[in-house]
């Protein structure tokens, strides 16, 4: 019995050293050496200070910015400390109500735009931190942002294209537009 306990306990200690200490330290060491930017959170740095991460979405509600995916995190949207989805079921009336409100908010910010809203712009994301929207969702907002900023559609299309990634390797995933990068590029435009 005592031999069994010794075997078990020592085996756990040895496995902890290998898989719980050596393994993560080795990965961290190599990762920081080879991929320092990625390992540290793909931070966007300006003047030596991090001003966001290209992988983590932020909230935008003003007409002059592109809006990202709705986020169900609490207490505030896009809360990095509490990732997760809404977990609202497909037949729950709360879902239809939330979607109606989001459509209303989008239309209030852009009167006269009666096109159907791309579904990703009115449904909350899985993580609550989704940094991206579909190209359709960017196109839907193009007119509003161009008007609010007083810039041409063509200029805006160029900026959208720069923030767009196609399917990875031409096959994987979906095409998407990074909202934070796009909005930072907008703010960086010289004022008129």
């Amino acid at each position: 019995m005592s031999r069994l306990l010794r075997n078990s306990l020592m085996m756990l200690v040895v496995m902890t050293v290998i898989t719980g200490i050596a393994y993560p330290l080795l990965v961290t060491g190599v990762a920081l050496l080879v991929f320092p930017g990625q390992a540290n959170g793909s931070l966007i740095v300006r003047d030596g200070k991090p001003i966001g991460s290209s992988l983590i979405g932020q909230s935008f509600t003003e007409p002059k910015y592109f809006w990202g995916r709705p986020s169900a995190t609490s207490p505030q949207a896009n809360n990095g400390m509490s990732s997760g989805g809404s977990n609202i079921g497909p037949t729950n009336p709360a879902l239809t109500d939330a979607v109606k409100q989001r459509i209303a908010a989008l239309q209030a910010a852009d009167p006269g735009n009666h096109a159907p809203v791309p579904v990703d712009l009115v449904t909350s994301s899985g993580s609550g931190l989704d940094p991206e929207i579909s190209p359709a969702a960017a196109q839907y907002q193009l007119g509003r942002v161009a008007k609010a900023r007083g810039i041409s559609d063509a200029q805006l299309k160029l900026l959208i294209a720069q923030a767009t990634s196609g399917r990875q390797l031409g096959l994987l995933g979906e095409a998407r537009v990074n909202v934070l990068q796009l909005n930072l590029a907008l703010d960086a435009l010289p004022a008129h």
């Binding site: 159907p116 809203v117 791309p118 579904v119 990703d120 994301s125």
Partner: peptide, 23 residues
């Protein structure tokens, strides 16, 4: 509702509640 759930070249469409854009 005024929502476009169709898959096109510009969006995945479908039931996107709780799903990520890149997936």
């Amino acid at each position: 509702l005024s929502v476009d759930q169709h898959a096109t070249a510009l969006q995945a469409g479908g039931n996107m509640e709780g799903k990520e854009t890149r997936f």
